[in-house]
Amino acid sequence: MKDQGAPPEASVQVSSKSVEDRRLRLVNRTMQLYRNEAHALIETLHAVQESFGYLEEDVLKYVARTLRVPLSRVYAVATFYHSFSLKPPGEHTCVICMGTACYIGGSGAILDALREGEGIVSGETTSDGKVSLLVARCLGSCGLAPAGVFDGEVTGKLDSEHVLERIGRWRGHEH
């Protein structure tokens, strides 16, 4: 009988990665925590996203083998949930809240201004790789509408000039 424990080729194909890439530590720890069971998939993808910044294809394959989840299922889960991204993020990340309160408060106009002023559309990264623009469903900071997150820092009561100014600074030009 063939040993069913280790999925075939798993160690061979990703050995270079698992040994050298320190970023895999958090991923491995997460999977071990759940004894490599398939239901750890979403938690593991969170770990991948956190340590790699996005879901790299090789890592997805590695996760699929380790948790013994079909490749297509891993991809399906990764694309079903909006927290995960398959593309590397820009140097900086700007999240604009499009929750109801923020929308009523004018966050749509901020997005329009960003599109016109900086040529960025939500979900995309500027061609210089500096800034990724994301839209949040609701940050829960409705009291501060419209709100946004600049590199992890929540900021409230935004307006278009303020946002354009910050993004301009990140990209190294003035408005």
Partner: peptide
């Protein structure tokens, strides 16, 4: 399997 959600869902093979 099926990738994405809603109107953008699409059937895929392996890693799309």
């Amino acid at each position: 399997d099926i990738m994405g959600r809603g109107i953008t869902s699409r059937v895929i093979t392996d890693l799309n």
